[in-house]
Design a binder for these strands. Structure first.
Lengths: 155, 155, 155, 155
DNA sequence: TTTT
DNA sequence: TTTT
């Protein structure tokens, strides 16, 4: 039995491409896109160096649909998620491994993006999986207790 | 209309006292306890300095009940939550303000704690608010998509 | 002797006012400002509710100067820091307590802000405390190892 | 020129093996080890499912030496770091990619570990890179301002 | 009021 | 492949 552990990723960067929105056979939405972050440092000669890291982001369900609708290449977003390694076989039958960030929260930021009013989503919406909260990224789960009425606070 | 924002706190420390478990009039559980973290630095004379910060933690619902059952003075825990300021009036009618951390996830760690097998919870369980997952801290909400069967992955 | 612990706060929100930049007697810069985050939930009648939380941010040294120079009311920022409680006495000699977020990293985001090109900093710069990295928020400390040259990687 | 971004990973889990401590040609220490986290969910039949994620951790310099000295298989640790992809060629000349977590902070927790008093470090210490704080993980960088003397607070 |  |  696995003991509780933590696997949390927090990213803030820009999309390298428009998200791709797909659906599983059972109709669940999933968006994928890449996000750039950059790491800066000063080398031994005192020169600024810079390396871009590309993160592969996966967003399932309602959050994926929101990504498909509102995000586009260049947009700046904050993402919270977890690291997940996925194994697959390439065409030669070799075992390959992909590391992806499974997003569970996302905040769209003002910066970047070219076509602000992006043409409506091409992909059909087969099914509105999960949740009735329209413009939300589904972050308010039951675990997030609101501030209760004052006379409800017993301390 | 409020734009999306982020208010996240991550703490790892030890409980200063046993949690207090109470219930609202409507039967919702809420546990409160304090958690110590310490900040170390070296002063200008090169001496190690140390300051303890006491955080007031509030855990609602099922998570609160788990705190009441399994945590005790001295135990080491990891907590994720949000900062919440609450206003109240003291006995002289002065406006006072309390800052609390509303926990939404918690990991119990091995360290600390005096009475490992704590006597069973004194407080009666009036109501099992929220959730059917008994030994969980309620973290697996709908937002956390599991790894789907391989033939379900469309990318 | 204190054991290692963790006290981390991550905020993303908008400034409620222009930062105030002050200097200690010894010439160290310190900026203070408030940051709004909002918490949304759906009440039992299914109506969207919203509560704004105001965080008091404190940024010392070079980071404080950057806040004084580049931030203004309405700007959207990401902040990482720690919670710190400070005790003081009000004019009646009563012990009061303030909870502040001591920032140690900050990312300026595109959103918000009224006067993009804010008039140059009014406060004199008494002393350039800490660090020679001009436009940086000082995040690249020694703890952040850059990617080494490939032939330097022994694994 | 890269804009500021964020790439942060927070993990809490157990080591899969003893760390390996190596040194670069220039004498810089680097420890590597794997860390397990687990993700739990309930499948459509209501059964608890569990998947272990193995993270490859890299710790440079003083932090790496501390890992080599104090960590061992089974130990529970909290790690903060960043994701870094590294490209290399396998023996067939194929481009391969490794995703690693570059640690920049680490907290040792009580749980796990088999040989509490592990035999002293086998690897020679070629060079004590970075830092004079012996038992510290080097987390108190210049960015972490201590609480100043009360008469130094100008607000 | 915690912990090593 | 992003961004300033």
């Amino acid at each position: 039995m696995a003991q509780k552990s933590l696997n949390k990723v927090i990213l803030l960067g820009h999309l390298g491409r428009d998200p791709e929105l797909r659906y599983t056979a059972s109709g669940k939405a999933v968006a994928t896109f890449t996000l750039a972050t950059s790491f800066q440092w000063r080398d031994q000669d005192g020169n600024e160096q810079d390396k871009t890291e590309w993160h592969r982001i996966v967003a399932w369900g309602r959050l994926g649909e929101i990504c498909g609708e509102y995000l586009s290449k260049g947009k700046q977003v904050f993402i919270e998620g977890r690291i997940q390694t996925r194994e697959w076989e390439d065409q030669d039958g070799n075992k390959r491994t992909s590391v992806e960030i499974i997003a569970n929260d996302l905040i769209m930021l003002g910066g970047g993006g070219q076509n602000q009013s992006r043409p409506a989503q091409e992909q059909p919406r087969r099914q509105n999986t999960g949740g009735s909260r329209p413009a939300s990224t589904g972050r308010r789960s039951d675990d997030y207790y609101p501030p209760p009425p004052e006379d409800e606070i017993p301390f």
